[in-house]
Amino acid sequence: MKFRLYRYNPESGKQPYMQDVELDIDPAGRMLLDALLAIKARDETLSLRRSCREGVCGSDAMNVNGRNRLACITPLGELSEPIEIRPLPGLPVIRDLIVDMEPFYRQYRSIKPWLINDDPVPETERPQSPEDRALLDGAYECILCACCTTACPSFWWNPDKFVGPAGLLQAYRFIADSRDEAMAARLDNLEDPYRLYRCRGIMNCVDACPKGLNPTEAIGRIKALLVKRRV
């Protein structure tokens, strides 16, 4: 199969370039990560992150034929050749397919992604009805792979100020949690022309999410709450 790989080694002094690679591999039942690891076994200078190889750790997000995906759950057979692989867009490239995720993590941290509840701690669990728990479905499953956020033009233009779809989905996960008491503060945190309202609902994030989550819908729900408390 034919691949075109984005290569960049900051120590070489060379500009980034696209490398054409041919690999003899049967695509049946194989994932893109298998192919990249086979290429790496031949040329160990190729650098990428990987860990769980089953789509739950979020390490190997990359841009494949123009779409952000997780290499480990992208079937090789689905891809048209030459398969063009680039690092995630909108984040600084460290080397080859490895980007500096810090701007993404910083936005994640900025929404205070932890449960806030100052009530006395009960001896057993805090009860939550299955209906209330169902509100978290589609929000808590995020694996922080950054496929969505780095597919969002609003994040490309304002990575320092716009929280991005992943961060906003997590913000919603805590706003929606019946056990969390900090909804007002969380909404205050997002009541800003940049942090939330850079989202124009173009839904690139929905298209990119390898876990099938819908950040745009969550953003819509946050907006509805902001409007509701104002009018």
Binding site: K161, D188, N189, E191, D192, P193, Y194, R195, L196, Y197, K223, L226, V227, R230, V231
Partner: peptide, 11 residues
């Protein structure tokens, strides 16, 4: 950030 506006303009 945290301008406490945004919803007004959006509305």
């Amino acid at each position: 950030v945290g301008a406490h506006t945004g919803t007004g303009t959006w509305l």
